[in-house]
Structures are given as structure tokens and as C-alpha cells.
Nucleic acid binder design. Structure first.
Length: 284
DNA sequence: CTGGGGATGGGGCCC
DNA sequence: CGGGCCCCATCCCCA
């Protein structure tokens, strides 16, 4: 994704208030449908400062909220429109006066965590200020159409496309990493399941051997009891594990599942094929 | 070397 | 969200 339109540099005294932005994300600043990051997209132009006497603020929300309600042409995000019953998160976050008060965790840390560049592109003014000839005045950045949207909508198809691209990126970044090893999963449940392979909570009462899951322990207990509930219908041989019965059934099959590409010899198990190939196949 | 059994691990799916 | 289950894979060992 082209990043050029997302990059903005800041002079020393106009660094965005990360704590404020982070708070918006934690409360109302996240996309209600996809959880994506929503940041204020309008900056006060240097020529249009905040109310005199106000402390320096990176964003002038007051003017933004007024623009949000403009009857602009709208392109809806499918993800957001699907479950969009509540107010637009962007509008809420911008309109909420609390958003400009309490500090929070640095947004830059969150962006870093998400693998995003430190700062998102922020147009300086909306609506674009037009000169007498209709041309955009200085201070209007190309990405400005992205900022003001009616609830759930965007000004242009390009703006919507960029938004959806960002949401896809954020969705892909939503990974759950194991602290004990370098594995990561797409869901918390999968991660919890994996963590059991470290904690091994299922203990065998006979020998004390530990297992990650109860059914693994059950299979192990059969090695103590000698129970073999899985019987081969062809030879009446019994097995303690279904997978081993399945492997055994392959021995009754005329057509072996795994074939050597060099000599066309077939094997019942991939491990046998691998061992065959490692030993040099039928090559001289 | 080959075939096969035994035991175990782990991801995904369903309820 | 957790447990049970299925399926696949792998390693070890023995005949």
C-alpha cells in the first residue's frame, strides 16, 4: 500500500497528543465493526489556530465536528455498514468533549504494536479551502477526502478503498502470540489451546506422565489398561488409537496412498515413502 | 532396508 | 469459550 499519503512530519511543538488519541481508540475511536483504528483526520491549519489562550493542541476537534454533519456524498464501508446500528465512532470520538482531556497510553506504542507507521496521514483542513479560481488553497492535502465522512461513509471511492485496505491490514495484524515460544495464532482460543502444550495440565494417575489435553491422557491410559476399542473389520486386529487403526487399514488397501515419483512404488504411510526416498530409492 | 504397530502432538471443527 | 472429537503428522521401535 502506498504510504506516501499517510506520512506527515511534525514540528517539535506540534506533536500529536498520543495519549488523547489512544483514549479515543480505547473508548469510541475504534471501528465498531472491524475494530480498526480511527484517528482524527483534520488538523487545524496554522493559519486557523484554536481559540486564543487555549494550550497548544494538535487537533482542533471543534471545527471538525461541525464539518462532519455536512451533507457530503458518502461511500459506505461494507464492514461497518453491516453492523452499524450505533453512532459513527469517528463522530462520537470527535464530538465527545472528554476525548480532549484525559491522558492515556501512548498511541505510538499501539501503532508500533500493530506494525503501522508511527503516524497516519492527516490532512490539514476540511472542507478544502478553495481560492477565487476554485483551486484548493494551501494546507489541503490530497488525502483530505478521507477525513470527513457522514456516519459510516466516505467522500470518495478511493477514500473508502484506502479505509478498507487499512482495516484488512489491521485484521491481519490481530495475532495472538505465545509468551513461551514464538508461535502465534489467529484466535485467543487457539492460543489457549497451544499454551496447554506448555503447562501440560493432564496428569496420568498411574505413571504421572503429563499431557496437554484430556483425550491425549485417555489414549495414554489405554496403554496401561490394554483397552483397544478400535477393531479392524478385515482382520479383527484391535487398536487403542483410531489413527493407528486408520494406518493399519492402509495395509489392507491394494492402492497405497503414497507413491515414489522415481520408481512408482507405493507406500501406506508417508513416513515409509520418505524413508524409501532418503535411502536412495531404487537408484543405483 | 522395509513394513507396520504403538504412542503422542497439535490444529481445526463442532457442539 | 471450553471440551470433545477428528484428522493428520511424527517419532520410536520391532519383526
Amino acid at each position: 500500500m502506498p504510504r506516501s499519503f499517510l506520512v506527515k512530519t511534525h514540528s517539535g511543538h506540534r506533536v500529536p497528543n498520543y495519549g488523547q488519541l489512544e483514549r479515543q481508540r480505547e473508548t469510541n475511536g475504534a471501528c465498531s465493526a472491524c475494530g480498526g483504528l480511527v484517528v482524527p483526520l483534520v488538523l487545524p491549519d496554522k493559519a486557523a489556530p484554536s481559540t486564543p489562550g487555549d494550550p497548544p493542541r494538535p487537533w482542533d476537534f471543534t471545527s471538525v465536528v461541525a464539518h462532519v454533519s455536512l451533507p457530503l456524498p458518502t461511500f459506505l464501508c461494507n464492514e461497518e455498514a453491516r453492523g452499524a446500528s450505533g453512532p459513527d465512532p469517528l463522530e462520537v470520538s470527535l464530538a465527545d468533549p472528554r476525548a480532549s482531556r484525559a491522558p492515556g497510553a501512548p498511541l505510538r506504542d499501539s501503532l508500533k504494536h500493530l506494525g503501522l507507521p508511527p503516524l497516519l496521514a492527516l490532512p490539514t483542513r476540511w472542507p478544502p479551502v478553495l481560492g477565487a479560481d476554485g483551486a484548493q488553497a494551501p494546507g489541503h492535502l490530497p488525502g483530505a477526502e478521507r477525513a470527513p465522512r457522514t456516519p459510516g461513509g466516505f467522500r470518495t471511492p478511493a477514500a473508502l478503498a484506502r479505509h478498507q485496505q487499512l482495516q484488512c491490514h489491521l485484521q491481519a495484524q490481530r495475532r495472538f502470540a505465545c509468551k513461551s515460544c514464538d508461535k502465534e495464532y489467529g484466535s485467543l482460543g487457539a492460543l489457549k489451546m497451544h499454551i496447554r502444550t506448555h503447562t501440560l495440565p493432564c496428569l496420568c494417575a498411574v505413571c504421572g506422565k503429563a499431557f496437554s489435553r484430556p483425550w491425549l491422557l485417555q489414549g495414554h491410559i489405554r496403554t496401561h489398561t490394554g483397552e483397544k476399542p478400535y477393531t479392524c473389520p478385515h482382520c479383527s486386529r484391535a487398536f487403542a488409537d483410531r489413527s493407528n487403526l486408520r494406518a493399519h487399514l492402509q495395509t489392507h488397501s491394494d492402492t497405497k496412498k503414497y507413491q515414489c515419483k522415481r520408481c512408482a512404488k507405493t507406500f501406506s504411510r508417508v513416513a515409509l515413502l520418505a524413508r524409501h526416498e532418503e535411502s536412495g530409492c531404487c537408484a543405483p
